[in-house]
């Protein structure tokens, strides 16, 4: 007797949490990115403004996302990105890709990469680049996760 699926077995869309961290109120970039990712077939969970790293990590956990995308325009990227990465790891979510955008100098981006932040995308980057980056990176991480001992 083979069980009948109660839901259609469809390939799982990439799930992305898009959050505005910090106190600045510029969410246009985050909204543009959220729409672009939806149009690329992703499921985008948009959380709105003024999210703390703790709120972001907890939402990422509950939503079981593949990606956390942060938009930071307050200049606090050197504290916020590492904090989110650390909190995700604390929750056993080291597989989640942390990416984002804003005004981030290349030297800072390099330093953030060293602590586990993924590629960062400055203003004017075609969203196509972000989509391609996420498709390939998430595919790798999902494969690694499926092969690994911890679900």
């Amino acid at each position: 007797m083979s069980p009948v699926p109660t839901a259609p077995a469809v390939p799982r869309p990439i799930r992305v949490l898009v959050a505005k961290a910090g106190l600045d109120g510029h969410d246009r970039g985050a909204k543009v990115v959220a729409s672009a990712l939806r149009d690329a077939g992703f499921e985008v969970i948009y959380t709105g403004l003024r999210q703390t790293p703790e709120m972001i990590a907890e939402a990422a956990l509950q939503e079981d996302v593949d990606v956390v995308g942060l938009s930071i325009h307050s200049g606090a990227h050197m504290t916020l990105f590492p904090r989110v990465v650390a909190l995700l790891r604390e929750r056993g979510l080291g597989h989640v890709v942390v990416t984002g955008g804003g005004i981030i100098p290349p030297a800072d981006a390099k330093a953030l990469e060293a602590v586990g932040v993924g590629r960062l995308f400055g203003p004017g980057t075609p969203t196509r680049d972000l989509v391609e980056y996420l498709r390939s990176t998430v595919a790798e991480r999902r494969a690694a996760r499926a092969a690994g001992p911890v679900r």
Partner: peptide
Amino acid sequence: TGGALLGDRVRMGAHFGDPGVFIRSLA
């Protein structure tokens, strides 16, 4: 496109971080 923009959490921000409220957005 098969994509979705799940925005209900925007209105539920007060509960983020409370382990007694589990919110899951579904497309």
